[in-house]
Each structure stands twice: as structure tokens, then as C-alpha cells.
Computed example of a mutant assay.
Amino acid sequence: MTRVLHVHPVTPQPRLLREAVEVLRGGGLIAYPTDTTYALGCGIGEKAALERLIRLRRLDDKHQFTLLCADLSVLALYAKVENPDYRLLKAHTPGPYTWILRGTHEVPRRLMHPKKRTIGIRVPEHAICQGLLAEHGEPIMTSTLLLPGEEFPLTDPLDVRNVLEGQVDLIIDGGFGGVTETTVISLVDGDGPEVVREGAGALDSIF
């Protein structure tokens, strides 16, 4: 049975955040709201939870996974970033962007693109996300709650509950979510930012 926690989107209750993080630390898979859409998340090293997520979304082996991070302080541990790129990231985080960077050896191989050895980095501007990350003390592996055959992510918490009942361990109901995913920017080639997907993050300040 899937647990549901009703968490305030602006002032999340610490007790409920602790309960959610206990699920993550126990190898569970959760659904939670972000500053763009609802998402699925699990601990970085939780292979079984990641495999459940892959099956749920029917992802192939070329899918680019993303680490949800509280800030850029963990960047050097998980990704390789040149100084000009770091300044760009700093100017646009937190916010609705996912940054594709070359991963380090600290990132489990199964989370990186199999050929490019890249990883997505995301710093959200959402109180529930930031509360989860602060309580967890490390990044969370995250993926948009976009189910197979659907054009848009689920937005209504009631729909999230009805569809994911029995498929995830915990749902954080933080109110209605958005339908527009993050803007994805690649900084891999060293030739400046490359737009991989245009989304919620504005592009006029990137270039």
C-alpha cells in the first residue's frame, strides 16, 4: 500500500519530511512535487528503487538521469565543471533548469549516460524539495513523473495517487503541479551552452 503525506508547499512540516526521507533511506521510491512538475525520486545508491522507476516509466538504457541537489556545493563531487560554466550555473540556480555535465567516478555508472558518461544536475526552487534534500543530506535521483504514452506529466495529486497506488512507496501531496518540464542545457562539449530541451526555464539569460 502506498503512503500519502500531505505536505505544505511553502512551509513543509519537518516531521513529514523526516518520514519521507526515512522511505528514501530505506530504499523506497517516492513521488513528490517540484518547482516544475511532479517527479519520482530515490536514493542515489538504491539500485532496486531505480529499477522500479525505470520499469514504471519504461525508460531505455540511453535515458539521462538527474541528481536533485540542494545547491552547487556538491557539484565538484559529482560533475566536472569549467569556471565559465560554473558561473552560468550559479547565476541560474536554484531554478527550473537541468544541466548536463560530465560525471565523476562518484556517480554510479547506471545513473550516467552509457556512452557520454554524463549526468544531469538540478537545483530546485521549491520548499518541499529543499526540505527533503536538507533532511536527506545528499542528492536524490530524480525523474519527471511522465508516464508511458502520456504527453504531459500528472498534475493533480489525486490523479497521482490513483495512478501510482501500489507502484511507489510514498506520495507527497503538495498541491497541484505544473505540466512544463525543466529547460535542459548541456555544458558537455566546452563550446558554450547547448539547449537540449526548452522548458520552464527562460533562455534569454542563458546566451
Rank of each mutant, 00 (worst) to 15 (best):
M1H: 12
M1R: 11
V4F: 09
L5Y: 05
H6I: 15
V10F: 11
T11W: 12
T11K: 14
P14F: 10
R15K: 13
R18H: 13
A20W: 05
A20R: 00
V21M: 07
E22N: 12
E22W: 11
G26Y: 07
G26W: 10
L29K: 05
L29G: 04
I30H: 02
Y32Q: 08
P33V: 04
D35M: 04
T36W: 00
T37D: 02
A39Q: 08
C42S: 13
G43W: 01
E46Y: 10
A49R: 00
L50T: 11
E51G: 05
R52A: 10
L56N: 06
L56K: 07
R58A: 12
R58N: 13
K62T: 13
Q64C: 10
Q64K: 09
F65E: 00
L67D: 02
L68V: 05
C69L: 14
C69F: 06
C69Y: 02
L72Y: 11
V74E: 14
L75W: 05
A76Y: 09
L77D: 15
L77R: 15
Y78K: 04
Y78I: 11
Y78P: 01
V81M: 10
E82M: 11
N83I: 11
P84V: 10
P84R: 12
D85H: 13
R87C: 10
K90A: 15
K90S: 14
A91Q: 13
H92V: 06
P94K: 04
P96D: 00
W99G: 03
L101V: 05
G103D: 10
E106D: 14
V107R: 05
P108F: 05
R110V: 11
L111V: 10
L111M: 09
H113A: 07
R117S: 13
R117Y: 14
I119P: 01
I119M: 09
G120W: 01
I121M: 11
R122V: 04
V123F: 02
P124I: 04
A127P: 05
A127I: 06
I128D: 04
I128M: 06
G131V: 04
L132W: 06
A134E: 15
A134D: 13
E135V: 11
H136K: 14
H136D: 07
E138A: 15
P139Y: 04
I140D: 01
I140H: 03
M141L: 15
M141E: 15
M141V: 15
T144W: 00
L145E: 07
L146S: 09
L147I: 07
P148M: 07
P148W: 06
G149A: 10
G149D: 08
E151C: 10
F152L: 15
L154S: 05
T155H: 12
L158C: 10
D159W: 12
D159A: 13
D159G: 07
V160I: 13
V160N: 01
V160G: 02
N162V: 12
N162H: 13
V163K: 08
V163P: 03
L164W: 05
G166R: 07
V168T: 02
D169I: 03
I171P: 03
D173G: 06
G177V: 02
G177A: 06
V179G: 08
T180S: 02
T182A: 00
T183L: 01
T183A: 00
V184A: 00
I185W: 03
S186R: 02
D191R: 14
G192S: 09
G192A: 09
E194Q: 13
V196G: 03
R197Q: 02
R197A: 01
E198H: 05
G201V: 02
G201C: 00
G201E: 00
G201W: 03
D204A: 10
I206D: 00
F207V: 13
